[in-house]
Simulated assay, not measured.
Amino acid sequence: MIRHVVVFTWSPDADAERRAATVAALRALREDVGGMTSLVVAEDAGLTEGNADAVLIAEFPDAEAFRRYAQDPVHLAVIAEHVRPILASRSAVQHEA
């Protein structure tokens, strides 16, 4: 199994409505793209100052399923239309679980 973890920090000018729409679009990837066995998209709980704003954790049965997801046009559209316009920084890792 491959676990894909992405940590997002939004730009300071991204308002609450835009952030919520982006999180909703990311959560919809499970149905809109598929191929994953689980998906969690969550906003930071605000317990520690300096944290990132949101995290995406997706699990895939194998590396090929992850690669299909990564190249899927719907996934790429969510990145282009929702994530990139408000993104200050992003970190990601894929690991075997």
Rank of each mutant, 00 (worst) to 15 (best):
M1E: 10
R3D: 09
R3G: 04
H4W: 15
H4Q: 13
V5I: 15
V6K: 01
V6Y: 02
V6R: 00
V7D: 05
W10Q: 02
S11F: 03
S11H: 08
D13E: 12
A14Q: 06
A16G: 05
A16P: 10
E17M: 07
R19A: 02
A20R: 09
T22L: 01
T22Q: 00
T22W: 00
T22P: 00
V23F: 06
V23S: 01
V23R: 05
A24H: 02
A25Y: 03
A25I: 03
L26I: 01
R27N: 02
R27E: 11
R27A: 03
L29W: 01
L29R: 00
L29Y: 00
R30N: 09
R30G: 07
E31I: 00
G35L: 14
S38F: 14
S38N: 15
S38C: 12
V40E: 14
V40G: 07
V40F: 06
V41Y: 03
V41E: 06
A42E: 13
D44V: 04
D44E: 03
A45R: 11
G46Q: 07
L47I: 11
T48V: 09
G50M: 11
A52M: 08
A52N: 13
D53K: 05
D53A: 08
D53L: 09
L56Y: 06
P61E: 12
D62H: 10
D62P: 09
E64T: 12
A65S: 15
R68G: 07
A70T: 10
Q71F: 11
V74G: 08
H75Q: 04
L76P: 00
A77L: 05
A77V: 04
V78Y: 00
I79F: 01
I79V: 10
I79W: 00
A80N: 13
A80M: 08
A80H: 13
E81G: 08
H82G: 01
V83P: 04
V83Q: 04
R84K: 09
R84W: 00
P85H: 08
P85A: 12
L87W: 05
A88D: 14
S89A: 12
S91R: 13
S91G: 11
A92F: 02
V93A: 15
Q94C: 10
Q94G: 05
H95E: 10
E96D: 14
A97L: 07
A97D: 07
